[in-house]
Design a protein around this nucleic acid. Sequence first.
RNA 1: GGUCCGUUCGUCUAACGGUUAGGACUCAAGAUUUUCAUUCUUGCAAUAGGGGUUCGAUUCCCCUACGGACUACCA
Length: 516
Amino acid sequence: MTEKIRVRFAPSPTGPLHMGGVRTALYNYLYAKQKGGDFILRIEDTDSQRFVPGAEEYIIEALAWCGISPDEGVEGGKIVENSSIKHPHAPYRQSQRKHLYRDYAEQLVRNGYAYYAFDTSEELDMLRKEYESKGETFTYNYQVRERLSTSLKLTSEETNRRLKEENHWVVRFKMPIERVVKMNDLIRGEIEVNTSTLDDKVLWKAVDELPTYHLANIVDDHLMEITDVIRGEEWLPSLPLHYLLYESLGWEKNQPRFAHLSLLLKPDGKGKLSKRDGDRLGFPVFPLEWNNSEGEKSRGYREDGYFPEAFVNLLAFLGWNPGTEQEIFSLDELVESFSLERVVKSGAKFNPEKARWYNQEYLRMCDKDKLADDFSHILAEKGIAPEKEYVKEVVTLLQERAVFVKDFWELGKFFFTSPVEYDLAVKTKFWKEDTPNILNEISETLLSVEDFSRESIEHLLPSLIKERGWQMGSVMNTLRLALVGASKGPGVADIIALLGKKESLSRIEKIIKAFA
RNA sequence: GGUCCGUUCGUCUAACGGUUAGGACUCAAGAUUUUCAUUCUUGCAAUAGGGGUUCGAUUCCCCUACGGACUACCA
């Protein structure tokens, strides 16, 4: 029997999920789905100090927008209704699993793998400053743990008394001395670390009486039978601790495999991508728009007009590639092609230009009815409500020219409103003395045309111009100026045909009057 | 500072010892479109540096440099 793959995405609700987090979720999802496994969504809310209201809902909605649906875990927001999500290991919010971790923390102390420490944050801050003034770095490790007020130094009577009377004790992991931990990472291969370089991490916090990430994470991954942990590179330094924790709890036989993903970097300069970069460089770093409690707004890919399919596609390619030259992948195709072996080790600088290109590609593939519907919403906001078929015709003419649906307006607003001003550079260049007469004559000809189709007009115009010996450039450009107001847009015949006889003639009349 | 991870065109990346080091985005030029955009063609552009190993290194090893992460009772 083959092993059932179970992965988890376990964000902390301390703010909106940024695109790096979405990518981590995506890779987890792709990995699980390809292997017929389950994708579990767990909320790691063990930091009561930094909890942000609305963050959990945001995370769920963002994943739903991307098409990443958990098989198991917390649910909420819009996906609650008719959700097929399972809960065999509920609850999936760590704050609701507090009692579990407490038991394991005590077990670790009992078995000599951890100890109680009574230092206050203030005392530790003072120690750090003291060391710093000597040019050294304070590390809570084997060199100091038997000298500070810990259960290692104190008698058991004293320890018990302090545990009972004081409420600022923590549990720390007793990091072994001079042991080389050999680890394996699915992306990076073998990694070795000497435990003497590591410190005694806090496993149970006094401030909020909750476990730290390290403990909660290991306990839950074990209890929830997670087979593969795919997470950000920032966790790599904690991997030895996590290995040792599995070992100390007696779970090393079936501990999960690990894969650490490289980080997403700033498009310019150095460092990892942060919220500020988006504002600074003008692109979203979040999947969905986010308003924080200070009333600051952060842009979202959704609100910027990206298709979720394009967003997912570009995210997948930030650190992974199929090894072929295909760059456009649907979510299903990604599921089929994804592999951890082809995940790139080095960090990827995000490139906003390429992101736009992805959207453009999707817009071109997009169904015209959907585009017309989406564009109709934008038009409705402007108080314009044309026939769906008309919008569809417009979209058809503009599809190759737009990157986002919202571009259709700038590209083709003349299809909905007569030009209010004209590009004077075009006028200067092409508007001649006899232009009004020529335009009038064109008007008359158009008026008498029975077949007002694009083909008919496309044939009629040049032959008329040639017949009269007019200048092609001058006539076509002034005609375009009348219809569009500028030197841009689809073919003149397309525009006239779509605008219709009445509107086209009225625009020609209008420009003649304007320049008279 | 310490520990760990990383390093191919400006950017995302391919090449898992033998290639004129390939593709995509960007940029530039030309063609088409008597507009603009598209499209097509072409071009610019990279193995961080130094040592090994090897008949042969982008590829394996070491050193250096550079970059990144971590170094909280945050995740």
